[in-house]
């Protein structure tokens, strides 16, 4: 039986936020009277994660994902609730605990800007007290996995965003953490780099057996890497289970957007999917269809062959829509 790496029990975090009225008068008023608002960033969340699992935390911006991660890393003290990570209480920040995990935040960096990445690696070696041979071995493996041998001796400021991200990952993994928190790791990267990073994360989990929590608002990140997903919306957990079941239940459709060169009848479109929108106003002839995920490509090619289509796009329903559906469902039940 797998041991639990992380156990979270009724975790909550509330913040005080100041409000200011607009204008100069608002500025002056704020001198003696500040209005507060309590933001419930995380509200009564519970879950447990086994060793070696790769979990996706999904949610919109401001849903509470990063706040939860920060509490798991010991950066934030919760307002209430209990957390056990690798047997430790994170916010006690014991060095033995900190040596076993790593937090990588997509837009923050720890590499020294005007020096080659290798210098930051050596620094981390000293900070994490990594023995020489372990350091050489781990570095070698990571450099090979990420294919960066020719750039680790180049100044970080001269690297592209993707190259920098790879070096950031290496810096974060030199001490072989058992637990990896990745906060929006692929943000701002191009499609190819996103795939490279995803492949690497998968490989790292396979090779080192690390437990990985990934937060993202890109559905693709989570789809590729995680069997299990936890959806957080407005600070609460609204779903925790197999990713496949979310996709099957809520993302079972794809959106087909069509532009026609001639008017088409509603009855012409109905066989191909659920019509969400149809515009035939003399100049624009457009339609939006919901088609089954699995049959999307087949439906698209049928529509192309049978109808006067000028332009066609197939899109994923946005994650916001999926979350809204899950949320609505949870409210209803």
């Amino acid at each position: 039986m797998k041991t639990a790496a992380i156990v979270v029990d009724h975790l909550s975090k509330h913040f005080k936020v100041y409000k200011k009225e607009p204008g100069v008068w608002g500025s002056i008023k704020s001198l003696w009277h500040r209005e507060y608002e309590t933001v419930k960033a995380v509200q009564d969340i519970s879950f447990s994660i086994d060793e070696g699992e790769v979990i996706g935390f999904i949610g919109q911006n401001g849903a509470g994902k990063t706040t939860t991660l920060k509490m798991l890393s010991g950066l934030l003290y919760p307002t209430s609730g209990e957390v056990s990570v690798l047997g430790y209480t994170p916010w006690e920040r014991k060095p033995d605990f900190q040596k076993q995990f790593s937090l990588v935040m997509g837009q923050k960096n720890q590499l020294w800007w005007d020096l080659p990445a290798i210098e930051t690696f050596e620094l981390n070696k000293a900070i994490y007290d990594i023995p020489d041979n372990q350091y050489k071995k781990t570095l070698g493996t990571l450099v090979e996995l990420l294919d960066v041998a020719d750039i680790i001796k180049v100044q970080v400021r001269k690297l592209s965003l993707g190259q920098r991200m790879k070096c950031e990952l290496i810096a974060a993994l030199l001490h072989n953490p058992k637990l990896l928190f990745l906060d929006e790791p692929t943000i701002g990267l191009d499609v190819i780099m996103q795939k490279t990073l995803r492949d690497f994360i998968r490989e790292y989990n396979r090779e080192f057996g690390a437990t990985i929590i990934l937060t993202s608002h890109y559905m693709d990140d989570v789809k590729e890497l995680c069997k299990r997903a936890i959806i957080i919306e407005k600070g609460t957990k609204i779903f925790d289970g197999e990713l496949q079941s979310i996709i099957a239940k809520y993302a079972k459709n794809k959106i087909l957007s069509l532009v026609f060169s001639k008017p088409v009848q509603r009855s012409d479109l109905e066989p191909y999917g659920e019509i969400k929108e149809l515009t035939q106003d003399g100049t624009n002839y457009t339609a939006t269809l919901l088609v089954g995920r699995k049959s999307a490509t087949a439906s698209a090619s049928k529509v192309l062959s049978k109808l006067p289509v000028q332009d066609l796009t197939i899109e994923e329903p946005p994650i916001e829509a999926i979350i809204r559906d899950v949320f609505a469902d949870t409210k209803r039940s």
Binding site: G74, L75, P95, L103, Q110
Partner: peptide, 12 residues
Amino acid sequence: SGEFSNLLTKPI
């Protein structure tokens, strides 16, 4: 800036 997190997560 929030980068203080980098320091807090180090085992030193």
